[in-house]
Write a protein that binds this DNA or RNA. Structure first.
Lengths: 197, 197, 197, 197
DNA sequence: TAGTAATCGAGACGGTACGTCGGGTCTTTGT
DNA sequence: ACAAAGACCCGACGTACCGTCTCGATTACTA
């Protein structure tokens, strides 16, 4: 902006990285302690020892704050590429289960999804940041399985992924108490031995 | 109930059924029009031509009002008993898809589920009023299918139901745009022709 | 009323005199116990064992109810005509002190006067029912005093009355703690021995 | 207070004096226009262009707001010390008449006094802020009059003050239409020429 | 004796104001 | 320029009370 190289002209006091982190940490803490309903921005500010406007300077809204704070907790680990279709899918499924089982997940996921209708931007974020990488890794594993004959040729990859994600979502977050013992194993069994056209 | 004596002596002005209905109708209308975030109890009162206190007399809170108003929309039609396993399950799945596809469902389900953590009463309502009857009807259809040989003997009924519900939930409510064409058909195919142990 | 023309056809259930009395009694009780601010019509109804509409059937508003209930407490006993100017005035002043000292008076008088501005009807009631008879009796006593030479000829009767009423009002109702010992005596002394032109 | 250091470090946005003033002004306006009964905190907020919470941040209740807004209108100008007993008392009496004649006075005084019974804090405020200074100035004038022989030695100062205040109160606020022409003059005549023991 | 009509207790109703709470913006002083 | 502090506007929340309205039940006078 100013002369040349100093692209970001960097005038005035620089952003305090510690504040930034403190806010995100306080957000997660508060979310875990009091839940979304009693979660307030003022509460975060107080706990982080930060002014409220500092929060709003960096995050446009309460929801955005929560989103960024919770993002690391909600990113799903990817399915690897080990050569074994069964193993790769299994790991992928386990990762999804682990991610949804995070105590933060229960507080955040539904609120986010609930606003998808209103705020299309959210859908974008939710999909692209949290589930899309996982979906791609799973799709890749499935494609590899099809290519090497482990899986039926005409397999509907998208449907399989939705089935896996949906079942896990249901078992972990919706029904009264999580039933996840051996869940990944059994779902992958179904995928590999079932006849999904 | 009816036979004996009207035990409740019915003193005082009776509850105005029209007001009651008007409130529930206005609740649904408003929910559909402006969504949960902009939904207001005062707005319901105005639209229903009703005093705000009449609403709070019968529903302890905004959420309770929404719950009761939305309940009929969210009850899932049951799987019938026609003799055909495939047909019964298919109808059951279609019913779930239809129920989740209601415009109200998107506004309400997540808000409700999101509070399940905080308010155990909600989980009870959600489960028992909305999904449990459907689950039972599906379980029955599956058991019949097992009994008459249409389905594998060791089938994990609960897992199948979670899989069906979860996949539908995912496709209708979570992913960017609903993909439900032929969904029931294909899921039931999977259940009947797959090898779920 | 009934005998003659029978104008009021007197059909239907006659008014229940006990309810009427119970309402007035409950009104006074409640006023004394909780004060005007916490006084509610519903509270009166409950205490009187009466329906709220029974109250509103006979009294147009909360204020009217209070007015009628409190009226007997607020009517000031009159100055007599004993032949002694001093004694008559003294009795009159004592009566005013007694009336204003009623526990109900403190609760009611100011509320009533405060609404005089808004509701001219109230001024009428207040003046004619409560203070006018007393003023007349005092005026008469003063006139007799002037006639028989006990009081100065040019005495401003209205001013004297306002002075008496005002001072008593002040001492009983306005200042922190009532100072009424010997008050009547001293005020009448002033009137008789002073030189009010 | 001022000299030393600004003990209160004055952090954060300072109170907006304009808002503060706007609220008090709007309170007086509204009180004058619609009277106490139709006076609304929300109405004040709207008229002052202020949020309701700003009002409640600084005044605990509707009554407190009215009290502070009306206080300047209700403070009575003091009796001076000119050397002339008659003149000093006369001015004092005129001030009381002027103060009670304020259009706000009628709206506020009774409401305040009516609550004296309930809220002792109010009595404190009413007495100390509004009438006590005036009473002291009148007492001083009377004492000076006694000292220099203008007034009888044994004069009951408190009684005279109550008499003056009470009569004025009565004439200005209680009786149907104010009769204040020459009132101060005549009351002071009475005090100076009367024989109050 | 049956009918008619006004009363009663109970309590639901529409409405209005209260005082509280939270979101997101703005304005100070300090660094 | 950015930070903490905290005041600001806005608008929804849930509560309380007013005065009105319906109920079923009661209690007289009328036919």
């Amino acid at each position: 902006m100013t002369s040349e190289a100093g692209s970001t002209s960097q005038r005035g006091r620089p952003r305090d990285a510690r504040s930034h982190q403190a806010v995100l940490a306080a957000t997660l803490d508060l979310l875990g302690e009091v839940g979304y309903r009693r979660f307030t921005v003022a509460g975060v500010a107080k706990r982080a020892g930060v002014g409220k406007s500092t929060i709003y300077r960096w995050w446009p809204s309460k929801l955005d704050l929560i989103l960024e704070a919770a993002a690391p907790q909600l990113e799903i680990g990817l399915a690897p590429n080990t050569g074994s279709t069964r193993h790769d899918l299994n790991i992928g499924a386990e990762q999804a289960i682990a991610s949804y089982s995070s105590p933060i997940a229960a507080q955040v996921i539904f609120v986010v999804i609930a606003d998808l209708e209103e705020d299309p931007r959210l859908r974008e974020i939710y999909q692209s940041k949290w589930v899309l990488p996982w979906r791609i890794s799973m799709a890749n594993a499935l494609e590899r399985g099809i290519a090497n004959g482990d899986l039926t040729k005409g397999l509907d990859v998208e449907l399989v992924i939705d089935m896996l994600a949906g079942t896990i979502f249901q078992r972990v977050l919706v029904i009264p108490e999580p039933m996840t013992d051996g869940l990944a194993q059994r779902l992958i069994d179904l995928v590999i031995r079932g006849k999904l056209l």
